[in-house]
Design a protein around this nucleic acid. Structure first.
Lengths: 212, 212
DNA sequence: ATGAAACTCCGTAGTTGTACGGAGATCCGT
DNA sequence: ACGGATCTCCGTACAACTACGGAGTTTCAT
């Protein structure tokens, strides 16, 4: 049985080393690439076979979902295992929909890591136990959807973004070619959806959602 | 020559493993503790000698500066090496003032890590090269101080914090036993100091400063 | 003990955002 | 082709914040 060819990308050298160390004594997995550069990963994928890519999805300047897409565009046979300390369930679902086959939290222990990589290499979905439970809970209660998940319309997101960028309603109206009143409506809808008390809550939401 | 007794705290297991791996082949440093729990670190310090503590200063629920203080309160002979991916120079300075002897970025390579731990163990300050340069630049130009650094008075910080927590001026006045007008004054001073256009800018600042 | 900085408070006016509630136009999926 | 969601716009009244500018009182370091 061949060992699993694993490529790793993370912007922190220690994490790369930590992972190498973790997999070192384990023959079933061999690390074929460990890098901090997304270009390096992509070009590697063009020239070499890789079974699993362990991807840190919260790197500066790079959007995790975007990176996921690019990886699959380069080689759609790679199984992606997302690696993050971001535990918002909605984000997890997003990643899984965008092509990741697994989602692991950074505080995972060695055994879990090996287990996850192995599962994913076989084409099986693997989601961190904690998150699984979380998602299940949310599905059951139906109600406990994270703030994050409250769906906003495209327009609302645009407006929220501009609010976060310190525009007044009038400025937003000008930029989006809307009437002031329309912007006010969107804003009011946003406030209601997000349970926001005032501009401050809205900004915080905008930041949470990565709009700012 | 005895090897340096190093304690590590970080909330991610991989990072702990990565660090252990990095120091493994190096006899000059021996890791006496690697934990994700702050309590564990503190109780260890009470019963054992530790030369250097490598501290992840951005852990959930725990404020880096606060942790620093606690460590030194437990054993003020420990040399603290802050370990973070947060590269705001003002924050770095804060940490160094609050008792950390070194500040290292998480993307540091093995050699740098060893160098840093060794220096710090000798009581020498160690600051990440990139940050050193940054700080120097800022000192020279005098002007490029990060927004972060604009000094706020205690009251102003209190007010800014409450603004960030979604209070209206009236609510802030009530909580601090001030007149509404006073709060308005503070707010106006804050806006001026921070070049804030509106509430939104203020919140962003509050977040940057870790007040929220 | 003296002065600078910080903290406190106020008046007046004007701008911006919030809270109601109503309504036509458009897009999109079954 | 129909219905629901979305997007657009408006009236009115009120709440919250901003922009000026002025001034007395602590507090604290030299």
């Amino acid at each position: 049985m061949n060992s699993i060819r694993l490529a790793i990308i993370d912007d922190h050298q220690v994490v790369l080393d930590g992972l190498q160390a973790m997999f070192n004594g384990y023959p079933g997995i061999s690390i074929v690439l460990a890098t901090t550069q997304q270009d390096e990963l992509l070009s590697h994928l063009q020239n070499h076979e890789v079974d699993v890519a362990l991807v840190d999805i919260q790197m500066p300047e790079i959007n995790g979902i975007e990176l996921c897409t690019r990886i699959l565009k380069t080689d759609n046979s790679v199984r992606i295992l997302a690696f993050s300390s971001f535990d918002d369930t909605h984000f997890v679902k997003q990643m899984l929909r965008k092509g990741a086959l697994g989602y692991l939290l950074k505080n995972a222990a060695r055994d879990v890591l090996i287990d996850a990589v192995t599962s994913v290499s076989r084409g099986e979905r693997y989601v961190d136990e904690f998150l699984q439970k979380q998602i299940l809970d949310e599905s059951l209660t139906g109600e406990r959807r994270s703030m994050y998940e409250i769906p906003l319309t495209k327009r609302e997101r645009e407006v929220l973004k501009l609010i976060g960028e310190e525009n007044t309603n009038q400025e937003i109206a000008d930029k989006l070619f809307l009437s002031l009143r329309t912007v006010e409506t969107h804003r009011s809808n946003l406030s209601q959806k997000l349970g926001a008390k005032n501009a401050v809550s809205l900004v915080k939401e905008a930041i949470k959602r990565g709009l700012v």
